[in-house]
């Protein structure tokens, strides 16, 4: 186990250094790719908290990415085009606060219902609620409906200029490190131990006197907020926010990252995101029908490789 640590450090360091180097020699494409990778990895870290450590298989986490992105898009939209003055702002802190509040609230309300159920019910209900968010944004014409929302501005944070691709990348990268560290802390804490206890044997935790429902709900909300934060970055990165972000195939891709990387590991979501983004890039440059090889690969992984990439590394 010990020899892996330098390897992990090496991966993180190259993720930080190479995109910037490439950008300096004029290949800004790789910087964009790395920024997207970091943002998706944050969302995967958030999902891993409940899926990996808590055993709650949520198929609806793209909803939080979308909510976070709209928390940037809607205030920016009103700031640009008027209406709803109390909401109109480009202040990044306000965007983040809205994103945290909305994704936390959405997680609380849906979690209250989802967490009463288990297994397949839970998978399907999380999926249904994210689809509800999808249809909600499709039906609001003010914010572009199906076509999405184009904002020609980004969140303003003191001393940071998100319009600069390198700073955008650095913010995403450091957020990723922060959330990986935060989730690591959570899982090592008393709370995290209770959570994995629930994953292993829920009945035992109930009889030991823990309030299982409450602990799961808190983890569910935390996980939603992390993905909501990733959504804020995603909205700033693309400046184009559409219901497509909430589509359930996005949720499926997030799950793919977490599972492929290896559940319940600190680095797993990052590995998964790296593999996913590279696969997507390579396959879609070969053929526009890249979903075909990707789907076949997914089936192969499920049928023949269990435990994800992390298990290969730690052998």
């Amino acid at each position: 186990m010990q020899f892996i640590k330098p390897l992990k450090f090496f991966i993180l360091a190259s993720l930080l250094v190479f995109p910037i180097l490439f950008n300096q020699i004029g290949m800004s494409f790789y910087l964009d790719l790395a920024t997207r990778l970091c943002i998706l990895a944050i969302a995967a870290v958030g999902l891993n908290l409940i899926l990996g450590y808590g055993g709650m298989i949520s198929f609806g986490h793209a909803a939080y990415l979308g909510l976070g992105a709209y928390a940037v898009g809607i205030p920016a939209h009103h700031w640009l085009y008027g209406g709803l003055d109390f909401l109109a702002t480009t202040n990044g802190f306000v965007h983040i606060l809205i994103a945290i509040a909305i994704s936390g609230l959405f997680a609380l309300l849906t979690g209250l219902i989802c967490l009463k159920t288990k297994g397949v019910y839970f998978i399907m209900i999380t999926m249904a609620f994210s689809q509800m968010a999808y249809y909600l944004f499709v039906s609001i014409e003010e914010y572009g409906g199906d076509d999405g929302l184009v904002i020609n501005t980004r969140s303003e944070i003191p001393l940071i200029n998100l319009d600069d691709p390198i700073q955008m990348f650095l913010v995403s990268f450091s957020s990723l490190i922060f959330f990986m560290w935060l989730v690591h802390l959570i899982t090592k804490s008393n709370f995290g131990l209770i959570l994995s206890g629930i994953k292993d044997n829920e009945a035992r935790m109930v009889s030991l006197g823990y309030n299982v429902y409450f602990h799961k709900l808190i983890a569910f909300i935390f996980s939603g907020i992390i993905c909501g934060f990733a959504g804020v970055l995603l909205g700033n990165f693309t400046t184009f926010i559409s219901p497509e972000m909430i589509d359930w195939s996005r949720s499926g891709e997030l799950m793919f990252m977490v599972i492929l990387g290896g559940v319940a590991t600190v680095m797993g979501p990052l590995f998964g995101a790296i593999v996913f983004v590279i696969l997507e890039e390579v396959l879609s440059s070969i053929t526009i029908y890249w979903h075909l090889p990707f789907g076949l690969l997914l089936i192969t992984v499920v049928l023949f490789f269990r435990g994800g990439l992390s298990s290969l590394f730690s052998k």
Partner: peptide
Amino acid sequence: LGTFGAIL
């Protein structure tokens, strides 16, 4: 996951 792959 497997049937998600099948959809794609």
